[in-house]
């Protein structure tokens, strides 16, 4: 396979993967209004755990890591996603109920830095700063894939996973649950006054989003075969924020557009460009600045993103005669006091 097609499939893989990551952050930030500045930490945990459970026992590999259970694809991926959700559960139980948005963001960004510190320094966990490598290529043995044919194959797998994840997410965002998430985003006080236990919904949103983060991370480690701390500097979270804000907060299709523009063109394409010998790394630095500036320009001039959140129109068209609904008009439904007391007991 020529180098050109290798690039194309690599870019395609990252497009799909960042679509998944963007959907996960979107349900947290875009739908529910949780500023999860630790998002990349959940991606990393998903990646490490997916890799570690699929690898053989660490003895004899020259690496140090926990687990090592030889669990095949796609079960390892699901375990990675669930582990990220479990981490989110702990974090949410400690901090979500107690803090307003910006303090929560402070705690989360701290968490992200601490997770990074621990994974980087504590070698027995995930091999420290070297990270995991020689992670088995999923199904490569069964399908007799070579290093070359694995890349297009796994880009396809990522596409299928992204499609499934998109289908599931659109079910959630279109449901009453998604509507309650958006009500909380718009005004948590009103949602609470309407009887919505805000904490429980924010927790649900955190768990769903973190599962997506974990799965997205799991795909990354299996695609590249390795994962180390340099792949998930805390600033990476910002890139995913840029994807959803540029694409359109609260819109799943916008995520694809955002992934395409930010992730593929600005982050991965420059990695394939030749660097300037006199200034090593300059392209990446300028690139990161461009993403930051792009996001700010977008927030200022088009805060709804390239593809804005759709208005969810009522299922009955404007021309429908009203006769069918007049019958139930204004059934305020006052309940007797006895039900009040029942509610109090429950």
């Amino acid at each position: 396979m020529s180098a050109f097609w290798y690039y194309v499939f690599t870019l395609l893989f990252f497009l799909f993967d960042y679509f998944i990551l963007a959907m996960g952050l979107n349900i947290q930030y875009g739908e529910t209004g949780i500023l999860n500045f630790a998002y990349i930490g959940f991606v990393a945990i998903g990646a490490y755990v997916t890799g570690a459970v699929s690898m053989p026992d660490s003895a004899g590999t020259g690496q140090h890591y926990i687990l090592g259970l030889n669990i095949p694809f796609p079960i390892n991926l699901i375990i990675g996603g669930l582990t990220a959700s479990a981490l989110a559960l702990i974090v949410a139980l400690i901090s979500l109920r107690r803090l307003r948005t910006d303090y929560l963001a402070m705690v989360l960004i701290s968490l992200s830095l601490v997770l990074y510190d621990i994974c980087n320094n504590f070698v027995p966990l995930f091999n420290g700063a070297d990270g995991l490598y020689n992670v088995p290529e999923p199904m490569a043995g069964v399908l007799k894939l070579t290093t070359n044919s694995f890349v297009p194959f796994f880009a396809g797998v990522a596409g299928v996973v992204a499609l499934i994840m998109w289908f599931l997410m659109s079910r959630i965002t279109r449901s009453p649950l998604g509507r309650t998430f958006r009500a909380i985003r718009d005004d948590a006080g009103v949602a609470s006054a309407l009887g919505k236990g805000v904490f429980r919904y924010q927790l649900t949103s955190m768990l769903i989003g973190s599962f997506y983060a974990g799965v997205g991370g799991g795909l990354i480690i299996q695609f590249g075969g390795s994962f180390n701390p340099s792949a998930w500097l805390p600033g990476e979270t910002f890139v995913i924020f840029a994807v959803i804000i540029v694409g359109g907060v609260g819109n799943n299709i916008g995520m694809i557009a955002g992934s395409l523009l930010v992730e593929t063109l600005l982050v991965h394409l420059p990695a394939f460009l030749p660097s300037i010998p006199s200034h090593p790394g300059l392209i990446e630095y300028v690139d990161a600045m461009v993403i930051g500036i792009l996001l700010m320009v977008m927030l200022w001039f088009r805060p709804q993103g390239m593809i804005p959140e759709r208005i969810r129109r009522s299922p009955i068209s404007a021309s429908t005669p009203l006769s069918s609904v007049t019958a139930v008009a204004a059934r305020a439904g006052a309940e007797p006091l006895s039900t009040v007391e029942e509610g109090g007991a429950s």
Binding site: I172, P176, T180, R182, A183, A191, K196, I311
Partner: peptide, 25 residues
């Protein structure tokens, strides 16, 4: 709830909607 439609503002209100549970969805 400014970003929601008028109808959605009302639809948020009913208590114990089965569609608010991930399992039911």
């Amino acid at each position: 709830l400014g970003d929601l439609t008028v109808l959605e503002n009302l639809l948020v209100a009913p208590k114990h909607q089965p569609g608010e549970s991930l399992v039911n969805i």
